[in-house]
Structure formats: C-alpha cells, structure tokens
C-alpha cells in the first residue's frame, strides 16, 4: 500500500479563529475515507485547506501528496497534481461556457503532465462519453458553468468534471446535500465507476445515507478540529443511530 496523502498535525484558521486543531490522517492509494462530524467541526475547512483556498491560513503542520509538499503549491498546481474538490456549493460563472471551461482545465492538466492538448474532436468525444455516465443532457456544453443549473445538476456537474480530470485524490464535500434519491444514486455510481487501485477519495458528509452507496474503508469522526475516532463503515451506522453528542 502506497501512501497518497499524509496529513501531519495540521492547524488552520480563518479570520484569526482556529478551526483545525491538529489533524492527522494517512490515506493510501485505493482507499475511501469518510469524514463525518457535527456542524462546525472543521470538515469543510479541511477540504478548503487541502485545495489551497486563500481565505484560510495554515498555522502549522504538514501535508504531502505522493511525497510532495502540498501546502507550498498554488491552488491550480494542486489541482493539476490531482487534487479535486467537489464543491459543497458549486459556483456559477455566467458567460463562461462549460466547453471552454472544461477544455481549458483539461489541457492545463495535460500540459502539467507533459501531454499534448486534446484536439477539439477528441475533447468533445470525451465530454460525450463522461456526460452519458452522469446522465447529463447534451445541451450542457453551451451553457455557462453552473448557471441556472438545479441543485442536482450542479452536483452531477461536479462529478462530471471529476470524470473528465481523473484526479488521484477526490474530496467530495457534502456531495449528498440537496440531492434526491435518484440523483444521489447517479452521483454515487459515477464516483464508484471512477475508483481505481491508484486513486483515493475523501467523502465528507453529515449523514450516513451517502455511505450506503459509496462504501468507505475508514470512517473518521472530526470534532472540534481534530479526528477523535476512527473505525470501519459500521461507525457511520453507529453515528446515525446515536448522533454526535458523545463528541
């Protein structure tokens, strides 16, 4: 088992307030880790810090992606190196078409990997193939990024982008929120299809429901900025039953 992501004693704050208070976590290739916990525990802060969101400040600790120091990398370089965040609230970008956005993103990643850019024809064929997997409509290409999308379409669009970019580390931040059961199934199936022995995912969720579809190898409880308990998938069921009150 090769470690993909190593987090050592990570502390982070926003606006001077400490949110992460010493997170330790090792994620190996091929693993699915669920992070659960009460609201305000720091779940979304962890995803923001791993992706380099400038609103957060890392005060101490280390993070390595395949041995590379992640924290010194610009957000776009982390993305090209394979860190992908499925946003809890995907951003609408009026006037920037999905096609233009996705093609720019994919070709930046390919350049980083020393690959040639895809031709328009190859790119469109790839879009078609991945959209079918997420049951997304063809008209998506000409629409602006996330503009006017329903809640379910936005979340599907996140997983679609993940399918296009094939990250080594996918962080799904509350991907289940706002999804009805059919959309949840499609999104989860998409995530499962993208699983390989070399990549890994972090599934951040408040509820156990998503974990019926995306079965985790490990479940961690994040409370007050620290991982306070780690178990297997049965821990999620236990939390569903007893709540987070003990933490």
């Amino acid at each position: 088992m090769k470690p993909l992501l190593v987090i050592k004693d990570l502390h982070a704050s926003i606006g001077g307030k400490e949110i992460l208070k010493g997170v330790n976590l090792v994620i190996n290739e091929g693993e699915v880790h669920a992070i659960m916990g009460p609201n305000g525990a720091g779940k979304s802060t962890l995803s923001a810090v791993l992706t380099g969101n400038p609103a957060y400040e890392v005060t101490s600790g280390e993070v390595y992606l395949r041995g590379q120091n992640l924290l010194t990398m610009e957000p776009e370089v982390r993305a090209r190196a394979g860190v992908f965040l499925s946003f809890q609230y995907p951003v609408e970008i009026p006037g920037v078409s999905m096609t233009n956005f996705m093609r720019t993103a994919l070709n930046e990643k390919r350049a980083y990997e020393g690959k040639e850019p895809l031709s328009a024809k190859e790119f469109l064929a790839l879009m078609r193939e991945k959209k079918r997997m997420l049951e997304l409509p063809d008209k998506l290409n000409n629409r602006s990024v996330n503009e006017g999308f329903s809640g379910g379409e936005k979340k599907k669009n996140e997983i679609f982008q993940m399918a296009m970019l094939e990250p080594c580390l996918a962080i799904l931040d509350e991907t289940d929120s706002g999804l009805d059961i059919d959309a949840l199934r499609i999104v989860a199936e998409g995530v499962n299809k993208l699983k390989t022995p070399q990549n890994a995912s972090i599934v951040i969720t408040h509820y156990q429901r998503l974990l019926d579809y995306i079965v985790p190898d490990f479940v961690h409880v994040l409370a007050d900025g620290k991982i306070v308990k780690t178990g297997d998938k049965t821990l999620a069921l236990e939390l569903e039953e007893k709540g987070y009150e003990g933490f």
Binding site: T51, E74, E76, F84, L85, E92, G95, V96, Y112
Partner: peptide
C-alpha cells in the same frame, strides 16, 4: 468574483487565465 476565480483554479486553470476568462465573459455580452 473571488469564489469564481478559486473555483477555476481548483480545476487547474491558472489565476491569470481565470481572470481573463471572467473579464472576457463580462465583455462578450
């Protein structure tokens, strides 16, 4: 929009290019 810039960076688009895409979108109208 800072959140739109970060969203694009998170997909691997460098910040300068992301700025350009947003400004162009604004002008295209």
């Amino acid at each position: 929009d800072e959140s739109a810039l970060f969203y694009m960076q998170q997909r691997g688009i460098d910040k300068q290019k992301a700025r350009q895409l947003l400004v162009n979108a604004f002008m295209k109208e």
